[in-house]
Design a protein around this nucleic acid. Structure first.
Lengths: 234, 234
DNA sequence: TCATGCCATCTTGCATGCAAGTTGGCGCGC
DNA sequence: GCGCGCCAACTTGCATGCAAGATGGCATGA
């Protein structure tokens, strides 16, 4: 219970309220497509399914709307947002900007901290390579996600972390979809290693540039892929 | 009423609800320090003052919490968030990342679009210079704010715009405070002109670098200023 | 004088009631 | 057969009731 106590001290013991439950449940449902994009649900219906009244569902919907995952249509219900290719372009630009700066900040930090982050990033990359040789797509995707999360968390900027988290929630479904299509996963490992090397060397400009180049290349292989499938929304 | 109709078509006629009113009123109160940081208000009290019941106030508070402007403390009320110097550091890093990428994107866009944005940016910069020669701090601040807003809006990325808007809401009070202290406002004009020149020339790398340098310099002059005032929060 | 514990008061979490806006379908007129 | 309007059913916006958690002050004992 040490962990619980620590959180209690930090957060004045916030045990999960019904609103938190509703928020988590709805977000999860959107992530795994139980609520498909374009689906329009009534708050009443969701409330019934979750065994609570409309109030907490409504308040959770407000938070989800703020996250860009749903739209609350007055007197018509909750609409699950779809992602158009243009949204993916926007999302990649935000990622390029934030991860680039994060890599730069890490590379410019004191050696001890830099090395600690680099070690973690290297571990994630090793996991990716292992998954790649075993053709284990699921593991590869998880390791890749962890690499990028560690990259942003390594910069120690809570606002950047939150921005990326929001963006990830929005693009999770697209990521799951494209994971199966990509044929150039191998290149990512090498690019990750270059980022790590720059961080170790304290080369801030190089770290930023490799992080940016990595995401820009991924974007340029993925967007045409989505377009070729004629996906108007996902 | 043409404007109202246009918005109606676009947004399914969303006239302002009480929640929107409460959100706007509270946000404004926080901006102009009617609600000072650290102040703890009860939802009931705010509801009375706004002439509505607790429900819309509560829902607006959830949105403000999502924006990072307040914290809703269970059964204790709404706490207006204060900004520590470390928050300003975080905020500047986000701005450097986003504005840098925005400048790069604009400079890499087709010439016609590029020039249109550059013209607007140049206008804002002219306004700054005029305000500077007249020692009109308020006008200077407004023109500067408009320059930076135009810079991000010029990239045409809705998510970037939203991120910057949120960040601006958070740091508005600090900006108002530091505006009076800064003694190097003149340098900004020149730096803005350099950004505009790079955009006009289609020099993406140069645009990004000048936008970044501009914000980094501003940060490095402001943060020590705040520290020297021993401001733990504002 | 100071620490401690209890209680009155205040505040929100959540459920629910009511009214107003939205929708889809049925029937009527052409 | 086809279009149009009306109505019943449904959905949320907002107010309010109730109960439980948080707080501060006062009384009590050392």
């Amino acid at each position: 219970m040490v962990r619980a106590r620590a959180e209690a001290d930090r957060e004045t013991e916030r045990r999960p309220s019904l609103v938190d439950d509703a928020y988590a449940a709805m977000k999860q449902a959107i992530r795994d497509s139980s609520f498909a994009p374009g689906y329009q649900a009534s708050e009443q219906e969701i409330a019934l399914r979750l065994g609570m009244s409309r109030t907490p569902v409504h308040e959770a919907a407000i938070r989800l709307q703020e996250d860009g995952l749903v739209r609350v249509l007055p007197r018509r219900g909750i609409l699950i947002c779809a992602l158009a290719p243009d949204d993916m372009r926007e999302i990649y630009d935000v990622i390029v900007a934030i991860e680039g700066r994060a890599a730069e900040l890490i590379a410019a930090s004191p050696e001890e901290r830099r090395m600690a982050v680099a070690d973690e990033l290297a571990d994630r990359t090793d996991a990716m390579e292992a998954a790649w040789t075993e053709q284990d797509l699921r593991s590869w995707g998880e390791a890749d996600e962890r690499f990028h999360r560690a990259l942003v968390e390594g910069a120690g900027n809570g606002r950047m972390i939150r921005i990326i988290q929001t963006i990830n929630d929005q693009s999770h479904r697209a990521r799951m979809f494209t994971l199966k299509l990509r044929r150039e996963l191998g290149a990512s490992v090498e690019e990750h290693r270059r980022i790590v090397a720059c961080i170790r060397a304290g080369d801030a400009a190089g770290a930023m540039e490799s992080a940016r180049a990595h995401r820009l290349r991924a974007r340029d292989t993925l967007l045409p892929l989505l377009d070729s499938f004629g996906l108007k929304h996902l």
